[in-house]
Simulated scan of single mutants.
Amino acid sequence: MILATTKVKDVEHFLEVYGTTGADKRGSHGSKGSTVYRDPIEEDRVWAVFDWDEDGWMAFATDPETPGILQEAGHLGRPSLGQYLGTFSA
């Protein structure tokens, strides 16, 4: 699992590109899906939890087509990854 956050110009437009072109590209690098949340404080920030391993993420991040997809989706900067600290029951 990977947690990432980014700011976007327009959340609705971001979701449209994220769910189509972005999904195709992520899937080609092994992503099994994701769940997206809007930040409760910063309305232009979104969070995504990916069912993805680090190798797949790195392949996506270094794919030469990825910057264009991020630009098309309206990212205002590069996505940042949350630091994994552990898994706990209940």
Rank of each mutant, 00 (worst) to 15 (best):
W57S: 08
W47V: 09
G68T: 00
L76E: 11
T35W: 13
E72K: 00
P79E: 08
D51M: 08
R45I: 00
H75L: 06
E43Y: 09
E42D: 13
I41N: 05
A59V: 09
F50P: 01
F60K: 07
D55T: 13
W47F: 13
G77N: 08
L70M: 07
D39E: 07
D55I: 11
V49Q: 11
A48S: 14
E43V: 08
I69Y: 01
P67E: 08
W47T: 07
E54P: 08
H75E: 04
V36W: 13
L70E: 00
D55A: 14
D44W: 12
Y37S: 14
F50E: 05
G56N: 14
R45N: 01
T35H: 15
A59C: 09
Q71Y: 01
A61Y: 13
P79V: 12
G77F: 06
Q71T: 06
D55L: 13
T66E: 10
F60G: 03
G56P: 13
E54A: 14
P40I: 04
P40C: 08
L76W: 04
E42C: 07
A59R: 10
T62P: 05
H75S: 07
D55H: 11
A48H: 04
P79Y: 12
Y37C: 15
P67V: 05
F60L: 14
F50N: 03
V49K: 05
P40D: 06
G74N: 06
I41V: 14
E42L: 06
T62V: 12
L76C: 07
Y37E: 13
F60I: 07
E65M: 10
E54N: 15
D55N: 11
I41Y: 04
R78P: 04
A73G: 03
R45S: 01
E65C: 06
D39N: 06
E43N: 11
T35S: 15
W57T: 09
I69N: 01
F50L: 11
P79I: 12
A61W: 12
D63G: 09
V36T: 15
D44P: 10
L70I: 02
I69P: 00
G68K: 00
A48I: 12
W57D: 07
D53S: 04
F50R: 03
A59F: 10
G77Y: 04
D55V: 12
V49D: 03
T66G: 04
W52I: 07
T66N: 07
T35L: 15
G77T: 08
W52N: 02
A73I: 04
D39T: 02
W57P: 05
D44C: 11
I41S: 03
E72M: 02
Q71D: 06
P67W: 04
R45Q: 02
D44S: 14
L76V: 08
P67H: 12
I69D: 02
D63V: 11
L70T: 00
E54D: 15
W47H: 05
R78Y: 05
D39Y: 01
E54T: 15
P79S: 10
R45L: 02
D53R: 09
H75D: 02
P79D: 13
W52C: 06
P79K: 14
L70A: 03
D53L: 11
I41H: 03
P64H: 09
I41T: 09
A59K: 14
R45T: 02
D39H: 01
A73E: 01
T66I: 10
T35Y: 15
W47I: 11
P67D: 03
T66V: 08
G74W: 02
G56V: 14
L70D: 00
P79F: 12
Y37D: 14
F60V: 05
G68W: 00
A73W: 01
E43T: 06
A61H: 13
